[in-house]
């Protein structure tokens, strides 16, 4: 539906550029836009990060409460992820409860964090069946210029690295740093014609036939994937997309010293 907003001329232009090995903003196919991450900017949150990926801008905040575990996992803490596509971020976003796109975003981010076992949820249990820490990750998108999956995953994991468990507020002893065992990094690849390109900006994202988000850990192992849009990948394209994602993630890891596990 949103695809129609990009004009035919722009669509052809971007496709032609891609066929000739180029992109509108001069990047190579495997370049991301510049990334900046600001940590701990929200004092009222237990952890926070503001991520700018080119013009895409969002804040991830972590809040931690004491609560009851789920009945089927009585000895594990709870992790929950939510994303808000604020109307301020784009004329396409509307007020109201999260819709399809916001839900998909939150769930893809959640899978990356959860499946990489970034948090040791066993350690978030205080007493089984009664008291566990509940970790809420909330993503607020402020400005939307494409590729929310990568920016939001980066925001979530960055915020977790500077999260302090507010134990004293709940009379559970001293506050302490939340341990992060693994660092998942998401990389989204868009397919334009026969071209695969990393970190699509808004127009590229809108006209791409298909996209693939690959979340890898520090060993390059795959922890989560999500294909999107009504286009397709062939088997070989899929394999090269994953290899691209592994390379890009490695590169991003190298840019930020705090993207390191704080515990084993």
């Amino acid at each position: 539906m949103t695809k129609d907003i990009v004009s035919e001329i722009k669509r052809d232009y971007l496709h032609n550029l891609a066929e000739n090995g180029r992109r509108e903003d001069g990047r190579n196919f495997n370049d991301t836009r510049p990334i900046s991450i600001e940590l701990g900017l929200i004092e009222s949150a237990e952890g926070s990060a503001r991520v700018k990926l080119g013009q895409t801008d969002l804040i991830a905040g972590v809040k931690i409460n004491l609560g009851e575990p789920f009945p089927d996992t009585p000895d594990k803490g709870v992790l929950t992820t939510n994303a808000e596509l604020l109307p301020m971020a784009s004329p396409e976003f509307e007020l109201g409860p999260p819709r399809e796109n916001a839900i998909e975003l939150a769930r893809v981010v959640d899978r990356g964090i959860r499946e990489s076992q970034a948090l040791n949820i066993d350690k978030l249990c205080i007493s089984p069946e009664e008291k566990v820490w509940i970790v809420f990750i909330d993503i607020h998108v402020l400005d939307y210029d494409g590729n929310l999956f990568d920016a939001a995953t980066l925001g979530a994991i960055s915020a977790l690295t500077n999260t302090v468990i507010p134990a004293s507020r709940f009379e559970e002893g001293e506050d302490y740093q939340l341990e992060v065992q693994h660092i998942p990094i998401a990389c989204t690849i868009a397919k334009l014609g026969k071209t695969l390109l990393v970190d699509p900006k808004l127009d590229e994202e809108k006209i791409c036939e298909a996209r693939l988000t690959v979340t890898t850990d520090e060993n390059g192992d795959i922890r989560a994937m999500q294909k999107g849009n009504d286009g397709y990948f062939e088997v070989d394209e899929l394999k090269s997309a994953i290899k691209m994602a592994q390379e890009v993630a490695k590169n991003i890891r190298g840019q930020f010293t705090f993207l390191q596990p704080t515990a084993q």
Partner: peptide, 9 residues
Amino acid sequence: LQMDGHMTY
């Protein structure tokens, strides 16, 4: 295509 869990290439 979706995936969750842990797989090497």
